[in-house]
Amino acid sequence: MNVDLAGIPIAILGGDRRELELAKTLLDLGADLRLVGFPPHPNLNSAKFLSDAETAVSGVKVVIAPMANTDSEGHIFTRLDQREPIDLTVILPKLTKDTLVLIGVAKPVIAELAHQQGLKLIETAEIDEIAILNSIPTAEGALQLAMEEMPITIHGSRCLVTGFGRCGKTLAASLAALGADVAAADRNKAQLARAVTMGLTPIPLADLHRYTDFDVIFNTVPALILTADYLKKLDSKTLIIDLAAAPGGVDFSAAEEFGIKAILALSLPGKVAPITAGKILSDCIPRLLQEMLEGGGGNAV
Protein backbone atom coordinates (compact mmCIF):
# COMPACT_ATOMS: atom_id res chain seq x y z
CA MET A 1 0.00 0.00 0.00
CA ASN A 2 1.45 3.38 -1.05
CA VAL A 3 0.97 5.89 1.75
CA ASP A 4 0.39 9.55 0.94
CA LEU A 5 -0.19 11.96 3.82
CA ALA A 6 0.53 15.12 1.82
CA GLY A 7 -0.88 18.18 3.54
CA ILE A 8 -2.56 16.22 6.37
CA PRO A 9 -2.27 18.30 9.58
CA ILE A 10 -0.84 16.10 12.35
CA ALA A 11 0.30 17.08 15.85
CA ILE A 12 2.69 14.97 17.91
CA LEU A 13 2.43 15.87 21.58
CA GLY A 14 5.47 14.68 23.47
CA GLY A 15 7.35 11.44 23.05
CA ASP A 16 10.80 9.92 23.10
CA ARG A 17 13.15 8.87 20.31
CA ARG A 18 10.51 6.50 18.94
CA GLU A 19 8.21 9.40 18.14
CA LEU A 20 11.20 11.31 16.77
CA GLU A 21 11.72 8.55 14.18
CA LEU A 22 7.99 8.56 13.41
CA ALA A 23 8.08 12.33 12.92
CA LYS A 24 10.81 11.98 10.29
CA THR A 25 8.71 9.45 8.38
CA LEU A 26 5.55 11.57 8.54
CA LEU A 27 7.47 14.52 7.10
CA ASP A 28 8.84 12.35 4.31
CA LEU A 29 5.23 11.43 3.47
CA GLY A 30 4.29 15.09 3.19
CA ALA A 31 2.38 15.62 6.43
CA ASP A 32 1.83 19.11 7.81
CA LEU A 33 3.53 18.26 11.09
CA ARG A 34 3.34 20.22 14.35
CA LEU A 35 5.60 19.14 17.21
CA VAL A 36 5.33 19.89 20.93
CA GLY A 37 7.96 18.57 23.31
CA PHE A 38 10.79 18.22 20.81
CA PRO A 39 13.96 20.30 20.48
CA PRO A 40 14.96 21.44 16.97
CA HIS A 41 16.41 18.61 14.88
CA PRO A 42 18.20 18.80 11.50
CA ASN A 43 15.96 16.11 10.00
CA LEU A 44 12.79 17.92 11.06
CA ASN A 45 13.39 21.35 9.57
CA SER A 46 10.07 21.41 7.73
CA ALA A 47 8.08 20.68 10.90
CA LYS A 48 6.52 23.41 13.02
CA PHE A 49 8.03 23.42 16.52
CA LEU A 50 5.53 24.84 18.99
CA SER A 51 5.56 25.36 22.74
CA ASP A 52 1.78 25.55 23.16
CA ALA A 53 -0.13 22.30 22.65
CA GLU A 54 -3.47 24.05 22.15
CA THR A 55 -2.02 26.02 19.25
CA ALA A 56 -0.46 22.87 17.81
CA VAL A 57 -3.73 20.94 17.63
CA SER A 58 -5.77 23.74 16.04
CA GLY A 59 -7.31 22.33 12.88
CA VAL A 60 -5.48 19.00 12.94
CA LYS A 61 -6.94 15.71 11.77
CA VAL A 62 -4.59 13.57 13.86
CA VAL A 63 -3.09 13.89 17.34
CA ILE A 64 -0.33 11.46 18.31
CA ALA A 65 0.48 11.08 22.00
CA PRO A 66 3.40 8.97 23.24
CA MET A 67 3.64 5.21 23.31
CA ALA A 68 4.77 5.85 26.90
CA ASN A 69 1.22 7.09 27.65
CA THR A 70 0.06 9.64 30.21
CA ASP A 71 -0.10 9.36 33.96
CA SER A 72 -3.40 8.42 35.58
CA GLU A 73 -4.56 12.05 35.47
CA GLY A 74 -3.85 12.47 31.77
CA HIS A 75 -0.51 14.31 31.85
CA ILE A 76 2.17 13.63 29.24
CA PHE A 77 5.56 13.71 30.94
CA THR A 78 7.56 12.14 28.12
CA ARG A 79 9.21 15.06 26.31
CA LEU A 80 12.60 15.22 24.65
CA ASP A 81 12.85 18.93 25.53
CA GLN A 82 12.40 18.15 29.25
CA ARG A 83 9.81 20.91 29.73
CA GLU A 84 6.55 20.92 31.71
CA PRO A 85 4.05 18.09 31.15
CA ILE A 86 1.22 18.41 28.64
CA ASP A 87 -2.27 18.04 30.09
CA LEU A 88 -4.07 15.92 27.52
CA THR A 89 -7.38 16.39 29.35
CA VAL A 90 -7.20 20.08 28.41
CA ILE A 91 -6.27 19.33 24.79
CA LEU A 92 -8.91 16.73 23.88
CA PRO A 93 -11.90 19.08 24.32
CA LYS A 94 -10.24 21.44 21.82
CA LEU A 95 -10.41 18.83 19.05
CA THR A 96 -13.19 18.54 16.53
CA LYS A 97 -15.41 15.45 16.40
CA ASP A 98 -13.85 12.41 14.67
CA THR A 99 -10.27 13.65 15.11
CA LEU A 100 -7.94 10.66 15.32
CA VAL A 101 -6.13 10.39 18.68
CA LEU A 102 -3.34 7.83 18.94
CA ILE A 103 -1.74 6.86 22.25
CA GLY A 104 0.06 3.78 23.52
CA VAL A 105 -2.60 2.79 26.06
CA ALA A 106 -5.28 5.25 27.14
CA LYS A 107 -5.77 5.73 30.85
CA PRO A 108 -9.47 5.69 31.87
CA VAL A 109 -9.64 9.48 32.10
CA ILE A 110 -8.40 9.79 28.51
CA ALA A 111 -10.63 7.02 27.15
CA GLU A 112 -13.72 8.53 28.77
CA LEU A 113 -12.94 12.05 27.59
CA ALA A 114 -12.29 10.88 24.04
CA HIS A 115 -15.64 9.08 24.05
CA GLN A 116 -17.44 12.16 25.37
CA GLN A 117 -15.87 14.35 22.67
CA GLY A 118 -16.64 11.95 19.81
CA LEU A 119 -12.97 11.41 19.01
CA LYS A 120 -11.56 8.30 17.33
CA LEU A 121 -9.22 6.86 19.94
CA ILE A 122 -6.61 4.33 18.82
CA GLU A 123 -4.48 2.52 21.39
CA THR A 124 -1.37 1.83 19.36
CA ALA A 125 0.22 -0.51 21.90
CA GLU A 126 -2.81 -2.80 21.56
CA ILE A 127 -2.50 -3.20 17.78
CA ASP A 128 -1.20 -6.71 17.21
CA GLU A 129 1.32 -5.78 14.53
CA ILE A 130 2.91 -3.13 16.74
CA ALA A 131 2.62 -5.06 20.00
CA ILE A 132 4.19 -8.24 18.63
CA LEU A 133 7.09 -6.41 17.01
CA ASN A 134 7.54 -4.24 20.13
CA SER A 135 7.86 -7.39 22.21
CA ILE A 136 11.31 -7.95 20.68
CA PRO A 137 13.04 -4.84 22.10
CA THR A 138 11.00 -5.26 25.30
CA ALA A 139 12.32 -8.79 25.76
CA GLU A 140 15.89 -7.75 24.96
CA GLY A 141 15.65 -4.88 27.43
CA ALA A 142 14.30 -7.21 30.11
CA LEU A 143 17.15 -9.64 29.51
CA GLN A 144 19.65 -6.80 29.74
CA LEU A 145 18.21 -5.70 33.08
CA ALA A 146 18.29 -9.24 34.43
CA MET A 147 21.90 -9.75 33.33
CA GLU A 148 22.94 -6.49 34.99
CA GLU A 149 21.12 -7.22 38.26
CA MET A 150 21.69 -10.94 38.80
CA PRO A 151 24.94 -12.47 40.05
CA ILE A 152 24.28 -15.57 37.94
CA THR A 153 23.84 -16.28 34.25
CA ILE A 154 20.50 -16.47 32.52
CA HIS A 155 21.63 -19.95 31.42
CA GLY A 156 20.54 -22.36 34.12
CA SER A 157 18.50 -19.77 36.01
CA ARG A 158 14.93 -20.42 37.17
CA CYS A 159 12.66 -17.89 35.48
CA LEU A 160 8.96 -17.16 35.75
CA VAL A 161 7.06 -15.14 33.16
CA THR A 162 3.65 -14.05 34.40
CA GLY A 163 1.29 -13.32 31.54
CA PHE A 164 1.78 -15.32 28.36
CA GLY A 165 0.52 -12.86 25.79
CA ARG A 166 2.44 -11.16 23.00
CA CYS A 167 5.27 -9.90 25.17
CA GLY A 168 5.35 -12.92 27.47
CA LYS A 169 5.77 -15.38 24.60
CA THR A 170 8.68 -13.51 23.06
CA LEU A 171 10.39 -13.08 26.42
CA ALA A 172 9.90 -16.73 27.43
CA ALA A 173 11.27 -17.93 24.08
CA SER A 174 14.34 -15.70 24.48
CA LEU A 175 14.98 -16.95 28.00
CA ALA A 176 14.62 -20.57 26.93
CA ALA A 177 16.99 -20.00 24.01
CA LEU A 178 19.62 -18.85 26.50
CA GLY A 179 19.23 -22.05 28.50
CA ALA A 180 17.00 -20.85 31.32
CA ASP A 181 14.48 -23.08 33.08
CA VAL A 182 11.32 -21.15 32.22
CA ALA A 183 7.82 -21.34 33.69
CA ALA A 184 4.88 -19.40 32.25
CA ALA A 185 1.82 -18.39 34.29
CA ASP A 186 -1.47 -17.37 32.74
CA ARG A 187 -5.23 -17.65 33.29
CA ASN A 188 -5.92 -18.84 29.76
CA LYS A 189 -5.72 -22.60 29.21
CA ALA A 190 -4.92 -22.17 25.53
CA GLN A 191 -1.95 -19.97 26.40
CA LEU A 192 -0.74 -22.56 28.88
CA ALA A 193 -1.06 -25.25 26.21
CA ARG A 194 1.10 -23.08 23.95
CA ALA A 195 3.67 -22.87 26.74
CA VAL A 196 3.81 -26.67 26.83
CA THR A 197 4.51 -26.82 23.09
CA MET A 198 7.46 -24.47 23.68
CA GLY A 199 8.94 -26.74 26.34
CA LEU A 200 8.01 -24.45 29.23
CA THR A 201 6.44 -25.27 32.58
CA PRO A 202 2.79 -24.14 32.54
CA ILE A 203 1.34 -22.62 35.71
CA PRO A 204 -2.33 -21.67 36.07
CA LEU A 205 -2.34 -18.19 37.56
CA ALA A 206 -4.74 -19.35 40.27
CA ASP A 207 -2.08 -21.82 41.43
CA LEU A 208 0.83 -19.37 41.37
CA HIS A 209 1.05 -19.37 45.18
CA ARG A 210 2.34 -22.96 45.00
CA TYR A 211 5.34 -21.94 42.86
CA THR A 212 7.93 -19.71 44.50
CA ASP A 213 11.37 -21.10 43.67
CA PHE A 214 12.64 -18.61 41.09
CA ASP A 215 15.77 -16.55 40.55
CA VAL A 216 13.91 -13.93 38.52
CA ILE A 217 10.27 -13.15 37.82
CA PHE A 218 9.19 -11.12 34.80
CA ASN A 219 5.67 -9.73 35.02
CA THR A 220 3.70 -8.65 31.95
CA VAL A 221 0.22 -8.51 33.52
CA PRO A 222 -1.08 -4.93 34.10
CA ALA A 223 -2.93 -5.89 37.27
CA LEU A 224 -1.80 -6.68 40.79
CA ILE A 225 -0.90 -10.37 40.80
CA LEU A 226 2.39 -10.40 42.73
CA THR A 227 0.73 -9.52 46.03
CA ALA A 228 2.23 -9.18 49.48
CA ASP A 229 0.96 -12.66 50.36
CA TYR A 230 2.84 -14.09 47.39
CA LEU A 231 5.98 -12.00 47.79
CA LYS A 232 6.50 -13.04 51.41
CA LYS A 233 6.90 -16.64 50.19
CA LEU A 234 9.81 -15.74 47.90
CA ASP A 235 13.50 -15.85 48.70
CA SER A 236 14.69 -12.28 49.26
CA LYS A 237 17.31 -12.83 46.53
CA THR A 238 14.59 -13.21 43.90
CA LEU A 239 14.70 -10.43 41.33
CA ILE A 240 11.41 -9.06 39.95
CA ILE A 241 11.23 -7.12 36.70
CA ASP A 242 7.79 -5.65 36.03
CA LEU A 243 7.18 -4.89 32.36
CA ALA A 244 3.49 -4.08 32.67
CA ALA A 245 2.07 -0.59 32.25
CA ALA A 246 2.14 1.57 35.38
CA PRO A 247 1.39 0.97 38.17
CA GLY A 248 2.44 -2.57 37.22
CA GLY A 249 1.48 -5.91 38.71
CA VAL A 250 3.69 -5.92 41.79
CA ASP A 251 3.11 -4.72 45.35
CA PHE A 252 6.30 -2.65 45.38
CA SER A 253 5.89 -1.54 48.99
CA ALA A 254 5.68 -5.15 50.14
CA ALA A 255 8.66 -6.12 47.99
CA GLU A 256 10.73 -3.41 49.68
CA GLU A 257 9.53 -4.55 53.10
CA PHE A 258 10.62 -8.11 52.37
CA GLY A 259 14.00 -7.02 50.94
CA ILE A 260 13.14 -8.11 47.39
CA LYS A 261 14.44 -6.01 44.53
CA ALA A 262 11.55 -5.16 42.22
CA ILE A 263 12.06 -2.95 39.17
CA LEU A 264 9.25 -1.25 37.26
CA ALA A 265 10.75 -1.26 33.76
CA LEU A 266 8.50 0.98 31.67
CA SER A 267 8.87 1.85 27.97
CA LEU A 268 11.88 -0.40 27.40
CA PRO A 269 11.70 -0.26 23.58
CA GLY A 270 12.22 3.51 23.65
CA LYS A 271 15.16 3.14 26.04
CA VAL A 272 17.10 0.14 24.77
CA ALA A 273 16.35 0.20 21.04
CA PRO A 274 14.72 3.52 20.10
CA ILE A 275 15.67 3.33 16.42
CA THR A 276 14.19 -0.15 16.02
CA ALA A 277 11.13 0.79 18.06
CA GLY A 278 10.74 3.97 16.04
CA LYS A 279 10.93 2.02 12.80
CA ILE A 280 8.11 -0.21 14.03
CA LEU A 281 5.93 2.87 14.48
CA SER A 282 7.09 4.33 11.19
CA ASP A 283 6.19 1.16 9.33
CA CYS A 284 2.75 0.82 10.90
CA ILE A 285 1.34 4.20 11.89
CA PRO A 286 1.32 5.98 8.50
CA ARG A 287 -0.52 3.09 6.89
CA LEU A 288 -3.02 3.05 9.76
CA LEU A 289 -3.58 6.79 9.46
CA GLN A 290 -4.30 6.58 5.76
CA GLU A 291 -6.76 3.73 6.29
CA MET A 292 -8.56 5.64 9.04
CA LEU A 293 -8.61 8.95 7.18
CA GLU A 294 -10.05 7.21 4.14
CA GLY A 295 -12.79 5.72 6.32
CA GLY A 296 -11.34 2.23 6.55
CA GLY A 297 -12.33 1.76 10.19
CA GLY A 298 -9.02 0.55 11.63
CA ASN A 299 -8.65 0.01 15.36
CA ALA A 300 -10.63 2.89 16.84
CA VAL A 301 -12.08 2.15 20.28
Rank of each mutant, 00 (worst) to 15 (best):
I240H: 03
A246D: 08
D235P: 09
T238H: 02
K237E: 12
T227M: 06
I225G: 03
K237A: 15
S236A: 15
F218D: 00
L243C: 05
A245L: 10
L224C: 05
Y230R: 07
T238E: 01
L239N: 03
L234H: 11
L226W: 04
L231T: 10
Y230I: 08
S236Q: 15
V221H: 04
T238V: 13
A228E: 15
L226F: 04
L243I: 06
V221R: 08
L231N: 04
K232C: 08
S236E: 13
S236N: 14
T227L: 02
A223F: 09
I225F: 01
L224D: 01
I225R: 02
I225E: 00
L226N: 06
A228K: 14
A223N: 13
A228M: 10
D235M: 13
I241N: 02
P222L: 05
A228G: 13
L226Y: 07
A223M: 13
L224T: 00
L243K: 06
T220E: 02
A228Q: 12
K232H: 06
Y230Q: 04
A244W: 05
T238Y: 06
N219D: 09
L239A: 11
L224A: 01
L231G: 05
Y230G: 01
P222D: 05
A245G: 12
D229Y: 05
A223I: 11
K233R: 15
Y230T: 08
T238S: 06
N219M: 09
L243R: 02
K232S: 04
D242P: 12
L239T: 12
Y230W: 06
T238M: 05
L239F: 06
V221M: 04
K237M: 11
A246Q: 13
Y230N: 01
L243E: 00
I241R: 05
P222T: 12
A244E: 00
